[in-house]
Design a binder for these strands. Structure first.
Lengths: 341, 341
DNA sequence: CTGTTAGCGCATTCAC
DNA sequence: GTGAATGCGCTAACAG
């Protein structure tokens, strides 16, 4: 067994052929006879050469088969979120089918530049917490696909968040209702709070504001008043924040009889807390979620929510990236009527 | 704005210095005066050069700052498993602290060779489903750290699975009990079934068999008989399989009054199904889990289980990899007494 | 179908 | 402290 790793050149020498022949045997089957190719491959295997060095190929070819998945937040956080992990699932299975590799990239990193030279492209799931990344992504010439947010002139995958929010709210609301909204990333605050008159962030680009628009439109149609002290901001769709917000909402007076939640995780925490407090759902409190995670279906009472297929988003985003599609895609959603309304 | 990307050479020319100087400014601060360095960095920034091309650096330096995390199974499956995703969390946060990147690698891939040339090392979480990967990993000269299984002469992170299983079983069992065991990957079958006298797989290396040893030791001490038709095999710690197995166990007669489960996911499905069937836990049925996931604590009745810190495993594995530690580490676990025993 | 050659972009000797 | 040369390992273009 050789101590030092074989290079293509060594192998060519050993087999008594030119380097191009070895290279072609591995990369361009059409460039040599099948017999010769197979002979070479067999002999390579025998001497323990498993193919051209990938690092050198990356430099030479300018492609690596690595796709970076930029998450909105730190990997730690994202990976335990059921919605995000379902998305990752979709991406990873589509990548695996195409023999591509998955590099996970945190949205709270400083910069994207330390991988840009060797990845083939970026899938960006949700607007990165660090806005510097947004700028960098927007300026790239390598392929970028965004999901759940948009970048000018880059392909994207979205659902119609405003319409979805409108539909679920419309289903839940009735004239005379007193409502609260548990929103996500509406203002620039690291903690749970009502938005009051804080300046709103990313109003144009964020899906949270689209959803808010949809809720408010439905409320208006039903003559339901929604003031800013009835709208909560949560920094993340996280059980911890959700619990805090749920408590505030349920303790507030007048206690709302309908709460529209921008994620199922939030809605489920609210549901559990309400039940613990002996509040009857839906008789005394109606709840809607958003996303359509499994746990929402299993809950008793089951959650009324908007279903979107996160894994399908992942598959589509991957396809858009690999096939260099240019279009901005809008995926369908579905209203799922549960027992919480 | 330049159309074509700047290379180090271009930049050197533009700034009127040698290529080595630019390179040193970015990589070896000690090789030039602070003033000069800062001037160069500033001018580079101005002309839009963000540093040496990473792909070229990988080839030249032989390191990439990319660490591959090889999962036992497909990424799709692993990422939705709470235990695995907590592990990933630990790894990713430790990597991020060290400015390393995370490449997720599926354990059911054909080979590891298509990334080996450009990653700095491998963390392998659980024995890869494709045994070819095991061979390849074992033969590598690049750093490898294994978790929840061992490779000769490679550092590893484990808990004492046998002792942990023994402890939880010892806590649950009493003389005269009738028990069942819901095990993981004990035999070579893609579906849920009793093991009967099927040939066991990976008896030496698998943690499932260590746990089984622990269970059986406790059973023996308590004079509890366990025949092979009371031991179930599940291919994965997955809700779907768990449900099947739970049903079989609860329908079997005599119905056991203690069920030892090799994961919390399995135990929780069993718990839910038992409650649905009106079986009283723990009066008529005692259940133990393994892992100590959050959901087990939240369940009512709360689950008696073995807690191991998966995120700590991730951190330790990363540290072992990055610091080239050689040791095989055994991490502590903790018995968590819940209400299901 | 095969062999030769010129870089891909850089880091690191070594002389100065 | 700086600048010129070599090669990391490979692929693509071309000539034969």
């Amino acid at each position: 067994m050789n101590k030092t790793k074989l290079t293509l050149k060594d192998v060519a020498e050993q087999l008594g052929v030119s380097t191009a022949t070895i290279s072609n045997a591995f990369n361009r089957p059409d460039q040599l006879s099948k017999a010769k190719r197979e002979e070479i491959l067999a002999r390579c295997q025998k001497i323990g050469y498993s193919g051209p060095n990938k690092a050198a190929q990356i430099l030479r070819k300018g492609t690596s088969n690595i796709v970076a998945l930029v998450l909105a937040d730190s990997i730690s956080y994202m990976v335990s979120d059921p919605v995000a992990s379902t998305f990752i699932k979709g991406v990873s299975s589509a990548l695996q089918e195409n023999n591509k590799h998955l590099l996970l990239y945190a949205g709270d990193s400083d910069s994207i530049l330390d991988v840009v030279d060797f990845v083939d492209g970026f899938i960006c799931y949700g607007q990165p917490r660090n806005s510097n990344l947004v700028k960098e992504l927007a300026a790239l010439t390598k392929p970028v696909v965004t999901v759940d947010f948009d970048l000018e002139k880059k392909p994207s995958i979205n659902i119609d968040n405003e319409e979805a929010a409108y539909r679920v709210a419309h289903h839940a609301l009735n004239e005379g209702d007193s409502i609260a909204i548990l929103g996500l990333r509406l203002i620039d605050s690291p903690s749970t709070c009502r938005i009051y008159d804080s300046p709103l962030i990313d109003v144009e680009s964020s899906i949270a504001h689209r959803r808010l628009d949809g809720y408010l439109k439905a409320a208006e149609e039903k003559n339901v008043n929604v003031s800013n002290d009835r709208i909560w901001h949560l920094p993340e769709s996280d059980r911890h924040f959700a619990r805090q917000a749920a408590k505030e909402v349920l303790m507030s007076s007048p206690r709302p009889n309908v709460v529209l939640c921008m994620s199922d995780i939030i809605a489920l925490e609210l549901l559990h807390m309400a039940l613990e407090m002996g509040i009857k759902v839906p008789q005394e409190l109606k709840i809607t979620g958003f996303d359509g995670i499994e746990e929402a279906e299993r809950a008793r009472p089951s959650l009324t929510t908007v279903c979107q297929s996160s894994s399908e988003k992942g598959v589509q985003a991957t396809k858009a990236l690999l096939e260099n599609l240019e279009a901005k895609t809008t995926l369908p959603f579905e209203l799922r009527t549960g027992e919480t309304v």
